[in-house]
């Protein structure tokens, strides 16, 4: 599903180049639950942004469903990411001016889904995440875990092929983090391809595969044997 070939990314700091990603090559298959780990500043978020098509690599090739994303212009990348990828953020990034219901509904609006379909889709997901009672509240009225639930609901309502979660539990207590992780696992069990970034060893084990980044290089890439992830 995803094929990264020699992806590189650098920033210009003053007159020198700082390499953030070096020589990144790996594939992600459909249905995988990949965890990216690594020390702070190792380039995890940068890699996620590239996979999410919010950012462009300086070198290398990126195929998404065999489409050469690295050759696309910004507009085509935007089109592709809109329809194929859902994002979950560490800081939730809900829109403060909108209610829970409206936050979740927003991607459907941008997709042009009809009103009745939107209503039933949002109702389903509210129901599934057990937040029906919160639908008219604003983000500031929710706990962190609840906000992240809404964030995930918003990310998956458009039925993306890939879910990207950059430290989804980073701002949460352990118990709330566990709830979010089991939700992600559930989604994975239903067939969703997921890539997550985490610093938490335990949460990493929810996935099927771990990639370890260090100074922009892939240091380790291993399948979780006990889970027996789909190949």
């Amino acid at each position: 599903m995803i094929k990264l070939n020699n992806i590189e990314r650098h920033y210009n700091t003053g007159s020198n180049k700082t390499w953030v990603l070096r020589n990144i090559t790996f594939n992600v298959n459909k249905g995988e639950f990949l965890t990216i780990m690594g020390p702070s500043g190792s380039g995890k978020s940068t890699l996620m942004n590239i996979i999410g098509m919010l950012d462009k690599p300086d070198n290398g090739e990126y195929f998404f469903h065999d489409e050469p994303v690295h050759t696309f212009n910004e507009k085509r990348r935007t089109e592709l990411h809109k329809h194929s990828i859902g994002f979950v953020f560490q800081a939730y990034h809900l829109i403060d001016e909108l209610t829970v219901y409206e936050n979740i509904e927003m991607p459907l609006l941008y997709k042009g889904v009809s009103k009745s379909d939107r209503q039933s889709l949002v109702a389903d997901i509210l129901d599934r995440f057990n937040i029906v009672g919160k639908k008219d509240l604003f983000p500031s009225q929710l706990s962190g875990g609840q906000q992240q639930l809404v964030g995930i609901a918003r990310a998956i309502i458009g039925k993306p092929k890939l879910l990207l979660a950059d430290e989804p539990t980073g701002n949460l207590h352990t118990s709330q983090g566990e709830m979010i992780m089991s939700l992600l696992k559930e989604l994975h069990d239903e067939g969703m391809t997921i890539i997550q970034v985490t610093h938490n060893e335990k949460f990493a084990t929810y996935g099927t595969r771990i990639i370890q980044l260090e100074d922009g290089f892939v240091r380790r890439d291993e399948e979780m044997r006990d889970e027996g992830g789909t190949a």
């Binding site: 999410g52 919010l54 935007t78 990411h81 809109k82 329809h83 994002f87 990034h93 809900l94 829109i95 403060d96 001016e97 927003m106 991607p107 941008y110 997709k111 918003r154 458009g158």
Partner: peptide
């Protein structure tokens, strides 16, 4: 910036 950024990631076009 935040609101606009989020909206864009979620799928809003420039026109919207």
């Amino acid at each position: 910036t935040k609101e606009v950024g989020v909206r864009k990631i979620i799928g809003a076009g420039g026109q919207q």
